[in-house]
Design a protein around this nucleic acid. Structure first.
Lengths: 136, 136
DNA sequence: TTATATGTAACAAATTATATTACAATTAAA
DNA sequence: TTTAATTGTAATATAATTTGTTACATATAA
């Protein structure tokens, strides 16, 4: 997908990982990423559903990581975002009267799925904590 | 990237692979993919620059594969399209005053590049000819 | 009670992707 | 030599996706 959702999610998770326990506001996160706070809250909502963060409403509220930091893998963030098609989209209506058009999407599906699984497997070897070590 | 360029290019190459030697028109290709012929010609232009196809203008013209079919790998098609960022885009202006914002894009660059290389290596094991065998 | 957060919906703006139109240049065949 | 079919490409238009903005109900600490 041609969007910044994964980059945004990694940025959020890295910052939270660097401030363990603290309730970090969406405004603070948005200021670091330099995007709109509503977008941050939407992404936090997705990360929350995936069990990666928890949030607290009201004054002094914010978000923090919700599991043992050493047990978070980059693949979990990638999968939470669910930006699956790493090789792009398929064409919607290939011609079923053509012997290639008829079969292309099944075949692309296999290729795309295999590639996706490969990426997830690769990212599942990368701990968030190790990624976060690269920062000041 | 959230587009259909790779799917389109694979479709083109598969059809040409199934019709070896023939000069296939962009109209015919467009009809099978069910997209506009100008888009097909643009993609053919990219594939041509990558040395994968050759085209002939004028009546009875068209395009055909320009190298030994057994020696074309899916990775070549992927790289020709140059839809690199499989994990998406980076945010443009992370805050340089934040210790994470300052370093995030270098770190994402590494991660994105590694992932891309992984995908290319994976696709470089797949021959177009084998992919094309799945079709009628 | 007030100030500061989140959560989320509805809408707007910007960006990206695809389609369309137009036409010059080329080539095969009638 | 003329005609019909085709590529190559630019310019423009339309559609789809992504990101941003505004608004406000709800929650909570001080």
């Amino acid at each position: 997908m041609n969007n910044t959702r994964f980059a945004t999610a990694i940025h959020i998770m890295t910052l939270l990982a660097k401030m363990p326990g603290a309730w970090v506001s969406s405004d603070f996160l948005a200021g670091s990423i330099n995007i709109n706070a509503v977008i941050v809250r939407k992404e936090l909502s997705v990360l929350r559903e995936a069990g990666l963060v928890e949030s607290k409403k009201g004054k002094e509220g914010g978000s923090r990581i919700s599991k043992k930091m050493d047990e978070i893998y980059i693949s979990e963030i990638f999968q939470a975002i669910n930006n699956s098609d790493v090789l792009g989209k398929k064409n919607n209506h290939p011609n079923p009267k053509c012997f290639v058009g008829k079969e292309i999407n099944n075949n692309l599906n296999n290729l795309f799925t295999e590639t996706n699984d490969l990426v997830i497997q690769f990212l599942s070897k990368k701990k968030l904590s190790e990624f976060a070590e690269n920062f000041g």
